[in-house]
């Protein structure tokens, strides 16, 4: 009962502050009960080529499209084995000048994201520990942003439920390997036209946003007495349905979106200030379908403390 009251208070606080998660529902890190982590991440992504179906092309109508994201996040240890996450990204998109389309970019709060991560197994195995975790996430649009305005749309504009299984083996010397796989159930997004073409006619203002599988393979190392983490990973997402962007035409939420990206990241916990960490990452999309060949860099601050 006490935990439940705390949770309510926390929700109220989070909603007011507009925060989200920092330890993520993707990794194998668990926070102890009554620990809280707040973080702010800034991400800058850009692309000047995109895959139209499987064909990689450029398009001077949109020139180079950039995307700035500020994502406040909160993670909470509800229990030693159950963590809660919350995030509200603010996104701004635009084209570089000059461009042939002269279209406005877009900006605003994107989706309210919640997630729960549960540690199912954590046991010693050989010279390390084996952990298995499961996560469930839910995201829902926070504002009435237009999903049908690609490439400037700030999101899919649909409710999204994700489930994910994570297995990690970490050697006592700090080296670890992790694989995760998940599935995104995506609903429909309401667009601002009542007819559209997606391999045939649709007489509705709802578009079905395809579900997707994800896969993540990670190798990392905790160094300097577990204060520095270095990680390299491959992350892929593949839609289970959807149409291709048509020739020299705009993308739309019904598209099959597939991509694979290489990510390098590092996180450093600054010992003199207990609980404070900095993180930075770089990612490059290496393959894709109906998505920009994006290069991203990001960084942020995390602060973890007991409550």
């Amino acid at each position: 009962m006490k935990n439940f009251t705390n949770l309510i208070c926390l929700f109220a606080f989070l909603c007011m502050a507009g925060f989200v998660h920092a330890q993520t529902p993707f990794d194998a890190i668990m926070m102890k009960q009554k620990e809280l982590c707040i973080a702010v991440i800034y991400d800058y992504g850009k692309f000047d080529e995109y895959w139209e179906g499987s064909y990689l092309r450029e398009n001077q109508t949109i020139a180079e499209v950039s995307r700035h994201t500020i994502a406040p996040m909160v993670a909470v240890g509800l229990h030693d084995k159950l963590n809660f996450y919350f995030s509200v990204p603010y996104i701004k998109t635009e084209s570089s000048e000059p461009n042939g389309g002269l279209l406005e970019g877009a900006e605003g709060f994107q989706d309210l994201g919640f997630a729960l991560k549960y540690e199912i197994i954590n046991k010693e195995l050989g010279k390390g520990r084996l952990a298995a975790l499961g996560a469930v996430g839910y995201a829902t649009p926070l504002t009435n942003y237009l999903s049908d305005y690609r490439p400037y749309s700030i999101g899919n504009g649909t409710n999204e439920l994700s489930i994910r299984g994570i297995i990690q083996y970490k050697l006592d010397i700090g080296l670890y390997a992790r694989v995760a796989s998940g599935y995104y159930f995506r609903g429909e997004t309401r667009v601002e036209r009542d007819y559209y073409y997606a391999n045939g006619s649709y007489y509705t203002d709802w578009m079905d946003v395809p579900d997707a599988w994800e896969f993540n393979g990670v190798i990392g190392w905790w160094l300097l007495d577990s204060s520095l983490k270095l990680e390299g990973s491959y992350y892929a997402q593949n839609s289970t349905s959807g149409d291709d962007i048509r020739k020299y035409n705009a993308a739309q939420p019904t598209n099959e979106v597939d991509f694979g990206q290489i990510i390098f990241s590092t996180q450093y916990f600054i010992k003199p200030v207990k609980g404070l960490g900095v993180l930075a990452y770089y990612s490059q999309m290496v393959n894709g379908r109906n998505i920009g060949k994006s290069t991203n860099i990001g960084g942020g601050l995390t602060y973890q403390f007991g409550i």
Binding site: V136, L161, F185, T204
Partner: peptide
Amino acid sequence: ACWCMLLVASCDSDLPR
């Protein structure tokens, strides 16, 4: 997880062609 899946799956509908 199953409960959540049902929640989303039940929203799926056939869009008019």
